[in-house]
Design a protein around this nucleic acid. Sequence first.
RNA 1: GGGGUAGUAGCUCAGUUGGUUAGAGCGCCUGCCUGUCACGCAGGAGGCCGCGGGUUCAAGUCCCGUCUAUCCCGCCA
Length: 612
Amino acid sequence: MLVSRGQGVFIAAFMMKRSHHCSQLRASDEGSTVTLSGWVDSVRDHGGILFVDLRDREGLTQIVLDPSNVGLESKFASIKPESVISVSGVVEKRFGGTANVKLATGEIEVHATDLEILNVSKTPPFPMDDSADKVSEDLRMTHRYLDLRRATNTKMLRMRHKTSKAIRDYMDEQAFIEVETPMLFKSTPEGAREFLVPSRMNPGAFYALPQSPQQYKQMLMVGGVERYYQLARCFRDEDLRADRQPEFTQLDIELSFIDREDMYALIEGLMKQVWKDVIGVDIETPFLRMSYFDAMNRFGVDKPDMRFGLELKDCCEIFKSSSFKVFSATIESGGAVKAFNAKGLADLTQGELRSLEDSAKALGAKGLAFIKCEGGEWKSPIVKFFSEEEKAALSELLQIEDGDIVFFAASEWERACAILGRVRLDAAQLLVKRGKLTIDPSEYKFLWVIEFPLMLFDEDEGRFVSSHHPFTAPVVEDIPLLDSDPKAVRGQHYDLVLNGVELGGGSIRIHQPELQKKVFEDVLKIPADVVESRFGYMLKAFEYGAPPHGGIAFGLDRMVTILTQRSSIRDVIAFPKNQKGQEMMTASPGIATEKQLRDLHIKAVLPKKEEK
RNA sequence: GGGGUAGUAGCUCAGUUGGUUAGAGCGCCUGCCUGUCACGCAGGAGGCCGCGGGUUCAAGUCCCGUCUAUCCCGCCA
């Protein structure tokens, strides 16, 4: 049927409505007349007979087009890959040996009696099968509507949906209320750089897009909501990484009248349900717990991957009076000498060693000392400085055997740990490459990292800054240290770590206005007038009966990345941005017109390089 | 802002110590083929070797610069 769209343009109206989807039909449907609609996945032309794999989001069905049906043959030329067609026909069981066991619908095929070409496709710029996993992201993102058609991405979108649904189901069962909070918020310059939104009606004033709904969710607690959650979009205008996008989705949670133990139990239940519902995996609870100190000391990161060992050891006892001054002097000045045994990696190449050294240097190491144990001999530029006792102690501590290589770092404790933490991860990858270590992506080692320092001293600013955010409550017995020794104060903060990824973090909050004011002004040294303008409403709210409360937030994108075993959060976002924050398909961001800028009372001042 | 890696056909890649006319697989086009399912067979088209400069008798290859993508550091309360 042809329908006029005015101006002499005619299009075929969509007349054939689908009766089944493309992974539905089975041998038991034999003889029934059906209509399928979808995309042409592949065409196999045998000169006479034509086989078409028709694809919709559910799967594939083989269509048989016989040229003896004259009405159909005239349309064959339009049946190109990715064209959209509707087919009516009769379901027939495939005869002797032509069934396809690789296909869910492989025991049948549809013999077409009618065919409608709905949209002829140009040749796509990249294939729609799994081989496109290797196609440059740039090209795939520019044509993301094609990329999303691929089975792997269809599956990803579904798993993401299932994850959100599992979360909502669980939170609902646990009596949480989903509350939306504003996207147009005010600027709070502490923390990440924000996206600003000019206010047309308030010349010179700007909203900021929220880095997280942190302050609003605490106000919901004061507002008596008691149990809040939200799948909230958050914005941070910082440089991007494989696991960082300028806008991302956070599962944001806040509850009243709870302590840390309540939070652990709640979240362990949540993860259990999500993993069960989305990938059918039973995870063990309760999760391991580890202090920040132990995490750094044993693994060199605050988010250790617990799927493998290669633990860091402390060598301060061994070297405190060593004649190797690089080590003994570091220990004397309060630093630490750490080491770990990359078991079986003595065969690493010069290039690999250099690359490990570069990793170490990136974190402030001057070099990367090592001992290689090969043929019963220790090969190392530094071993000549070690005494026999030191060698024996090392061998004992690190269980050094033939084929091993031990790496050292000597620096302030935290830096020494961080350097080896990084080398540990790189070395693990090299061991995996050699088949000497297995890191199973479907093994899930959850871990609570707890007892973080509440504050860190910022050398640049010359003052203490919150390691999490300024609303985190100190551990109660550490409160007296706020004045005397701020860096020794532990926060009631917790991070949930999975396989080396920080899935989420949160804290029990301060709910007493005096304590909050003290943290802002006396400890963080934020001027009183700034506190008043930024957080005055909060302090005021706390004076009207704020319940004790705490919360947590999870990176939904990171969670789905792990569940789908992808490598970047870009792989689990429908329309992600590239490393420059651009969305390639729509080419955003774009240039604003003069009029738009005038209306907003702002002026674009480009950097010199960009001019003309 | 800094460091690493990559950029050759529509896509994925190869291209030796610098040396004739830059190749392969897939895709695309044409023809043949009635049981394929990554169908097959035959033929064909398709290249600013990212861009600019330099070295050289000669540059895809070496040098410098630059752009783009990506990974990392800084940054991410």
